[in-house]
Computed example of a mutant assay.
Amino acid sequence: MVLAIETSTVICAAALVENGRVLSEHSLNEPHVHSEKLLSLIDNVLISRDTHRTPVDAIAISIGPGSFTGLRIGLSVAKGLCYAWNIPIVPVPTLHALAWNCIIYNIGYNADYVLPMLDAKRDELYAAMYLKREHDLEEVSPVRAISQGECLGLVQHNHRTIIIGDAVEKFQMFAQQQSPGRTDIIAPPPEQRYCTAASVGILGERMLREGNTAKLASLEPAYYKEFVTTLRVVDCTTTTLGE
């Protein structure tokens, strides 16, 4: 049984997965609550199952890209639990798990490709491209931070591509401006566009069987971009009375 954690976007979620089935899942779609609510969500999914009788075998964590703060919070909690329970950690690529929504929930069943995307700010997207098979995905373009123009270049004409993620609306507007009237780019309803803990858990369970675990001490979030801060310059010049 795998405990899955998703904190890469505005979604804060936890799920229990066993043999490809979602046993329990709790999630919140609220900004800036990850540090406050994540542990209670994990408690809820554990309480819903008798984990004392059937202990958790590993933790699958959405490792990035995504919100820098959200990724750090999720990984810190996952590491703490892995150390406490002496179990392995499975770092699940966030965009791969996001693309897996299409397989798990049968989203865009007639699409040829899946293009998961997250907003990377500064007119960029985190994106990857997957060839959609009946029960699997094949990566054809790796995860990277790219411009919207580069992302549009990944979409082949006359091949239906489903776009999924929190950058969908942003990309749709850009695509319509650049290629008006295209019908080969499709998007699911807003409620189906976010990565879920269930997807992280199902993919994480598969990775665990393949031996794809990580060293706890050295594991870091996969940011794919350098952290950039904006400094506000304040005029600290003092003026003496009478000058």
Rank of each mutant, 00 (worst) to 15 (best):
E6Y: 02
T9K: 02
C12N: 02
A13S: 15
A14I: 03
A15L: 07
E18M: 13
R21G: 02
R21L: 04
E25I: 01
S27Q: 15
N29T: 07
E30I: 12
P31F: 11
H32T: 09
H32F: 14
S35I: 00
E36A: 13
L41K: 00
D43N: 15
D43Y: 00
S48A: 15
R49V: 00
D50M: 10
T51S: 12
T51D: 07
R53Y: 06
R53S: 14
V56L: 09
A58G: 00
S67C: 05
G70V: 01
G70Y: 03
L71R: 06
R72P: 12
G74Q: 13
L75T: 05
L75M: 02
S76L: 11
S76C: 13
K79R: 15
G80E: 02
I89F: 03
I89L: 15
P91H: 06
P91C: 00
W100D: 04
N101F: 03
C102W: 01
Y105A: 01
Y109V: 11
Y113V: 07
D119Q: 11
D123H: 04
E124W: 09
L125F: 10
R133I: 01
E134G: 11
E134L: 12
H135R: 13
S141F: 03
L152I: 07
V155Q: 06
N158T: 09
R160P: 04
R160W: 03
R160S: 01
I162Q: 13
I163P: 08
Q177H: 09
P180V: 12
I186N: 08
I186W: 00
P189G: 06
P190C: 04
A198M: 06
I202F: 05
I202D: 12
E205L: 09
R206G: 02
L208G: 08
R209H: 13
A217W: 03
S218R: 02
L219G: 00
Y223T: 09
V228R: 11
V234Q: 12
D235L: 00
C236F: 04
C236R: 08
T238G: 07
L241R: 11
L241E: 11
E243T: 15
